[in-house]
Amino acid sequence: MKKSFILASVVLSSVLASASSWAAKEEVNVYSYRQSFLIEPIMAKFTEETGVKVNIVFAKDGLIERLEREGKLSPADLVLTTDISRSVELVEKDLVQPVQSEALEGNIPAQYRDPADQWFALTTRVRNVYSSKDRLGKQPELNYEDLADAKFKGKICTRSGKHPYNVALISSMIVANGEAETKKWLEGVKANLARKPQGNDRDQVKAIKEGFCDVSLGNNYYLGKMLNDEKQVAWANAVEINFPNQANRGTHVNISGVSLTKFAPNKDNAVKLMEFLSDDTAQKIYAEVNFEYPVKPGVAVSELVSSWGEFKSDTIPLAEIAKQRPVALKLLDEVKFDL
């Protein structure tokens, strides 16, 4: 037993050492829902310019719960999200604080930040409809509503309905058309599915290439990434990108965001990083490397993205959309969308 005590104390002391190592230094701690390899180049730039070290924990799920449990002791300063509903959830759970910053207000248009300044969008991403180049061609007249039309029977592919990107889209439909209408729409889409919802947005494009289906839902930047991937470029070349609902309310747009935690221990550096993320250098990297739409006016989208043309985006306030999230989830269960 003696050995185990020695072992335990070694472990404990090394743990404590690592725990105290991030106290009182020039650094920012980030909980990120965004994959770290996407944001690492930006963070490296930030460290280079300011000398402030950025520590990251990336996870697709559970970070908000971790923050909640850690409470005022949490080392986290910033939370990066990939979806409006997460940003709103942070606010609702009272885990974040408002930031008054002229730089942020200057960089980010009002529609892309929380009226109470508790969350800020860094980029916007469009929920596009991809269509088969060979079998359907470009669909400029298409509305999201048309996906329930019988003419698409057995021709639609999508990832899980429960994925935040789809949930946000459905929420926006609830805001636009009401709950009952949206449920009918979901039933129609489900009946049109070529296969059970599965994979990610790229898989759906691949499925179009392979002839499983003719239409799919997907975020805009995936097409950019596929076009720049040796293996996937063939998939991307098989589809057209469409911006639905141009004749009416516009295409659904989501955001990736950032918030300052309520008990951020490195508040100054954290705000510095937020400002950096909303400024030209970072915005450009978002646009160029990840094919997202920068929020800062005047920062150019990438050449590829601009080749897709101008489009009209849905102007429903993002907060409204986030509010409909539980209803959207309920409808998905009711029509057994994923099953």
Partner: peptide, 30 residues
């Protein structure tokens, strides 16, 4: 439970006027 432990510990230390050690359990290797 780890969060609870951390908070109790910090409250205890602060109660006696010390500087709380922060998160010792959650968010660490432990």
């Amino acid at each position: 439970p780890f969060g609870w432990l951390d908070h109790s510990l910090n409250d205890l230390v602060e109660h006696f006027g010390g500087q709380g050690p922060g998160l010792l359990f959650s968010g660490t290797m432990l």
